[in-house]
Write a protein that binds this DNA or RNA. Structure first.
Lengths: 235, 235
DNA sequence: CTTAAAGTGTTACCTAGGGCACACCCGGCT
DNA sequence: AGCCGGGTGTGCCCTAGGTAACACTTTAAG
């Protein structure tokens, strides 16, 4: 019982710190928490069933999961987005978009809270502040997606790779975070290309002295040089 | 005065028919209408200033406009989306996303209503039903964008072009609508490629007897053949 | 009517990057 | 230890599609 209480308090804190719940009363958060169940997916296996996602609304508490599509024609997958703590999914199912084969897969130990859709919808109607935050959240997702298509269309792969690295780099140490433990295959799925091409360019960066690579570890050795790879400010 | 009244009634009707206003009371719609001003952009010129979009929220009444980004590096533009009647923009500015150089340009005579952002935000807070519809609207936009990136990464240009044509085709007559009056340049911007490549493939389709082309007019002569161009259902 | 500008059809060229193949390396398992 | 599987490092080959260049045609403007 004590343990239960402690977990409950932990989830409560987590929600409280999530900008999505800004302006939402403690009472409402409590009410929502009473509707949730939790699920822990241990590393790298838990492919969330579409039947789940179309009946539940999920909150990411800890961990990391990818949302991806799979193309049978050329046996490739494309990661639409990486979900991290404070993310939610799927807004699509919440508002009944068209059917689409999107897969969810955890990349490490991941803790989720989930609410049945009808209850979530109902709760949402009573909490306008959450709606407003959710819209902001969605607006940002839209912007990110727009950036993706722009990048994919306009930039070549070294550029996209450099940007990806830069975005996930500790600005001080140059150490790559979040995506350091991903295989080249996964990195390829993130920027829309294949394993071998990713490898090619990573090694190119390495040869240029931009990058240092070890097992599950990458560090940018020259941030300026990395920047030059995507800052095509042709003066 | 009479004319004014008539226009007012016309806008009222337009909003009433817009699914975004589903569940919104006539009073609220009226209230919103009192905050709006209208603007008509005559054909193909009206590039809406970013300062406008970051201070106003727009409703498309009639016409068509494109939202695009421009890449100086290779002097190309990419159309992120085509806005048609019942669309709104920009949700980004409404919820304060990051700055981004996105341009708006009308493609034909276009009639817009617009509201200053603070007033719109205020009105939004009082109309939760509109928020819910707006979220659905945004969810659909997200889905469309996700489809875009998937297509761009996974499919080649003939396939993307065929899909575009199919989506804008009158299912009975095979006549291409909406995008028939666009130049090859504009079509290229829609599917993420260049004028001459578009031209190449359009003529290829023509040679295959899939397509018939005249001035500002295209018609699919064999819908099955067109489908075969993107239905890679390899038996 | 004349001229400019925008759009089209078509060529030739060239390179980024997808596909495939194979050898290697390392970590985990029995 | 030995094996196996997932992840690498490289190579080569080949084609889709980006680029540039030209001529021609249609529309818009003066």
């Amino acid at each position: 019982m004590n343990v239960e209480l402690e977990r409950y308090r932990y989830y409560f804190e987590t929600f409280l710190n999530n900008p999505l719940f800004k302006g939402v009363s403690a009472d409402s958060i409590n009410e929502l928490l009473h509707l949730t169940k939790s699920r822990v997916c241990t590393n790298r296996t838990c492919v969330i069933d579409t039947s789940d996602t179309s009946h539940h609304f999920f909150f990411v508490i800890t961990g990391k999961l990818k949302v991806y599509v799979y193309d049978t024609k050329n046996d490739r997958q494309l990661t639409l987005t990486l979900l991290v703590p404070q993310d939610v999914f799927s807004v699509m199912s919440l508002f009944g978009g068209l059917k689409r084969k999107v897969y969810y897969e955890t990349l490490e130990r991941t803790e989720l809270l989930y609410v049945p859709l009808p209850e979530m919808k109902n709760w949402l109607k009573k909490n306008h502040d959450f709606s407003l935050s959710l819209m902001k959240y969605m607006a940002l997702k839209i912007q990110t997606l727009e950036n993706s298509v722009t990048n994919i269309v306009m930039e070549d792969i070294p550029t996209r790779l450099a940007k990806l690295l830069y975005q996930n780099m500790d600005k001080n140490t140059g150490v790559i975070q979040h995506i350091n433990d991903l295989s080249h295959d996964e990195i390829g799925a993130l920027i829309g290309t294949t394993r071998s091409v990713v490898n090619r360019h990573i090694n190119f960066f390495k040869d240029q002295g931009i990058l240092e690579v070890k097992r599950k570890y990458m560090r940018i050795t020259s941030i300026d040089a990395l920047k030059r790879e995507f800052d095509h400010s042709r003066v």
